[in-house]
Amino acid sequence: MIKHLRLAAFVIAGVAATSAAHADVTVYSAGPAGLINGLAEGFKAKTGVQVNVFQGTTGKVLARIEAEAANPQVDVLVSASWDTANDFTQRGWLLPYTSPNAATVPDFLKSETAVAQGVSALGIVWNPKSGTPKPEEWADLTKPEFKDLVTLPDPAQSGAAFELVAALSGTAGNWKLFEDLAANGAIVAGANAAALNPVLQGAKAAVFGAVDYISFAGKKKGESVEVIFPASGTVVAPRPVMILNWSKNQDEAKQFVDYILSDEGQALVAKAFLIPARTDIPADRPVIKDLKLLEIDSTQVYANRAQMLEEFSKIFSKK
């Protein structure tokens, strides 16, 4: 027993020692862990400023910020949904800042208080080994060849998926496409990874509206998978970077935002198969100008969010 206690003391001491190193900038980030870790390392190498990262889904990151509200810890936040930027701006939690490196970021990817780190787009992710014809359009997945072979990410769990549903159903509430999908045996599979997994294994043939960068990365590793962006249009999910106005390290926070938007930072973004926010950075994948974007009225769409999710889940729980 004494030995155990000694071990515990050792562990606690070790644990305390790790925590003693103080963070200079604290970043909460959704999205690829590799990317944010790379950015943190690169930034430290360049400036000597330590970046401490908490990484999770957008939901977990926001829940942590909410719970910490009495004594906020975060300096810089990277969300996977632009909606976060709108909401935090409304709450007055953000520090207005325009990075000098943001000059070539298109206007729709920046505001006074937020700027995109990178952008992901939604597409059809299709397994060529599935024995199905290559789909070109969203509606192709309602065809009999895809009977029981389609998954959808849950719009309640993925902001981008929600925007796609909103864009495709339109403000008039035209749910025909989704009713057809449901009638064709498509299932709502949870978050993005849960929708993709059965397609990779061959249980399903295609994901309707998958976040693209994960599949690009998978393809690079040799997975049998293709990403198709329908010509009729799709939606993109810009990933906003924000500085919280309670930050006590605002200068370092600004430097970090500058670094994300620097040539080096944007190259790391491109390497994670995201579309770089800056249009002058090359990427090994279709970028925004290659895509047709569907318009949505985000104010109105987000006002009706609960209602639309309700409608959506009703359609898919009918069968």
């Binding site: 939901g59 977990k60 926001l62 909410e66 976060t84 309640a156 902001g159």
Partner: peptide, 10 residues
């Protein structure tokens, strides 16, 4: 859902 869906409902 309440903890991870914005707005967070703690």
């Amino acid at each position: 859902t309440r903890v991870s869906d914005w707005p967070i409902d703690l």
